[in-house]
Design a binder for these strands. Structure first.
Lengths: 154, 154
DNA sequence: ATCATTGCAAACTGTTTGCATCAAG
DNA sequence: CTTGATGCAAACAGTTTGCAATGAT
């Protein structure tokens, strides 16, 4: 058998993907953590778990999984891809010091926030855009970096 | 003389940078357009203007200019860096079809929009973050892509 | 004379692809 | 038996760096 976790097998086959060992390990890792891994970090995490994998296999499967909508893909502020298991629309709170991020919902009157042209001469074109939604990236400092900064300045 | 546009020279020297030809051309391009160029696109635009430049010089100066705060740098959804001349805090409206983006301000009660944990077990950690602000990426379809889509479906 | 800038070429990182091997349906 | 998955190695794209030549102060 290729995958010993039934709920993972089902999640894959429901999207038309075969439940291969590599896919089960990737999805298992993402479901058990709430991390937003880069491919390199994922490779290391899988190696630590005793589930090593070739980097080509990882990239190939990350592409398949995200195209199928089983996992989410996005690009971090440093330009490297990151993946998570949360496919519902959500936002991120990013640490401006270390780059770590957590999943958040946006609470409040977000729907009332609308775009407005910065340059007057662009206002005409802006009015003809069809606005469909927004992604919010909250920026802050995580607890660990707050402590680190306090220690350094003391 | 290295730079024949006084307002550009001043903008550079005010930030402690020498007004070299390469910097004047880069800043001139960004000020005259409201584009969000990748380095490659900028190289092409400069070449078209008859102001060619080595790719290394371009990267070196983009780094200096953005570190000095003369221009803004960010990473697009495709993972490649983009630069603009707007250094005041602002947001972007991105076309989900072609990727083109325009600068916008966020009008509305954005300050009342706050992060909320997606996973209950993360709520404790979230409370200890220091939230400093947010970046909004409005997503939509630009006029040109709307027209293109209408033509295709007709 | 000194120090910064330019630009070529080489190095490097993140990512994708060709291809041979292997396993599943 | 046919199709898809794996993984090595090579190719690639975007970016950075070492270094020699050039130009500014």
């Amino acid at each position: 058998m290729a995958c010993d976790r039934p709920e993972i097998t089902e999640r894959l086959t429901a999207h038309g993907l075969r439940a291969t060992p590599a896919r089960c390990r990737i999805l298992g890792l993402l479901l058990e953590t709430h991390e937003h891994y880069t491919p390199e970090e994922m490779l290391e995490a899988l190696r630590t778990r005793g589930e090593p994998m070739s980097i080509a296999t990882l990239y190939q499967n990350l592409a398949k999984l995200s195209e199928a909508g089983v996992i989410g893909r996005f690009v971090g502020p440093d330009g490297v891809s990151r993946y998570d298991a949360v496919t519902d629309p959500h936002h991120h709170l990013v640490c401006e010091v270390c780059g770590r991020m957590v999943d958040v919902r946006a609470a409040g009157p977000l729907a009332e926030v609308v775009p407005q042209a910065v340059f007057p001469e662009d206002a005409g074109e802006l009015a003809r855009w069809q606005v469909k939604g927004h992604k919010v990236e909250f920026v802050g400092v995580c607890p660990a970096c707050q402590a680190r900064l306090r220690a350094r300045s003391a």
